[in-house]
Write a protein that binds this DNA or RNA. Structure first.
Lengths: 148, 148
DNA sequence: ACGTTAATTGTAATATTGTTGCGTTTACAT
DNA sequence: ATGTAAACGCAACAATATTACAATTAACGT
């Protein structure tokens, strides 16, 4: 669970990307790092209900642009956000991992360790990035399902 | 392009799923089959601006539920719809193909022929469906890019 | 420390997208 | 032909996202 990151890590991160260290930004980072799943926009909004919605949108898009977080849409088309694991540059993400969307609890898991197999596209298609998306039951929900 | 389907095909399709043959439904089917890319909700709405928005939503969700079309969210999180190729049952889709989203023209291509490689998930995760999602340049746009 | 300034936030207004309830119309089975 | 359930259209609303601008504040040099 959680990468046990501390505030100064986040401050370094913001520094690195020439973003000012503000309370809202640090809170967003801390919330997202405290979870092992992606965080949905509605979740963010309800937890941070004292931060203005517009500010939240701007923080998220700034982070995404800088390669600090990445966005993934779940089954219902709602935006979920998760910290990028590593080397995502300005404007260029490298989050070619599996996104697992649990149909029960709706959580989106980023399975970073999973290597994507090579894919051959039809002629003419020039790929820039791949994402594998899976739906099903996450460990928690599959356990519950068995018990019943 | 297009699967050169005719109206009576659509009528059969609707019959098969116990859906009444109405003008709006036939128009939606005919529009979607006339394209080789998925159709975005905004596109549908602007082309069929004489059909009520709510009706459109209901048609789309009915078709999706019956396994006639499937929904895929593009880079911007907007819903795109495409006809299912084959054997998609009521409530159970089998659209485990590649969705290619062109970053230039924003079109979403369903590359049905592409076989997805086997994926091993971490223990506990019980998959129901996979979708591979790629971004990049489609044939048209990559040609243009070369010319410039 | 202190003031300046550009970046960031907050506020208000608006646009877009999706949903719900209900009365009217229509396909289609009898 | 006609009754009925299904589908449509309309109105109102809810949720999500964007834009413009004024107020605030982090970070820099002095």
């Amino acid at each position: 669970m959680a990468q046990t990151l501390h505030n100064f890590h986040f401050e370094d991160l913001l520094n690195k990307h020439h973003l000012k260290k503000t309370a809202p930004r640090l809170r967003v980072l801390s919330m997202m790092s405290s979870r092992n799943t992606a965080t949905s926009q509605p979740d963010l909004e309800s937890v941070m209900n004292d931060i203005d919605r517009v500010t939240l949108y701007r923080i998220l898009s700034a982070f995404e642009e800088k390669g600090i977080i990445h966005k993934v849409f779940d089954l219902n088309g709602t935006a979920n956000y998760a910290l990028c694991t590593s080397n995502c540059d300005e404007g260029h993400h490298h989050d070619e991992h599996l996104h697992f969307n649990c149909t029960q609890c709706k959580n989106v898991y980023c399975l970073n360790d999973l290597q994507l197999p090579a894919i051959n596209l039809p002629v003419g298609f020039v790929p820039q990035a791949f994402t594998l998306y899976a739906t099903g039951l996450c460990p928690k929900c599959s356990k519950k399902a068995v018990k019943q």
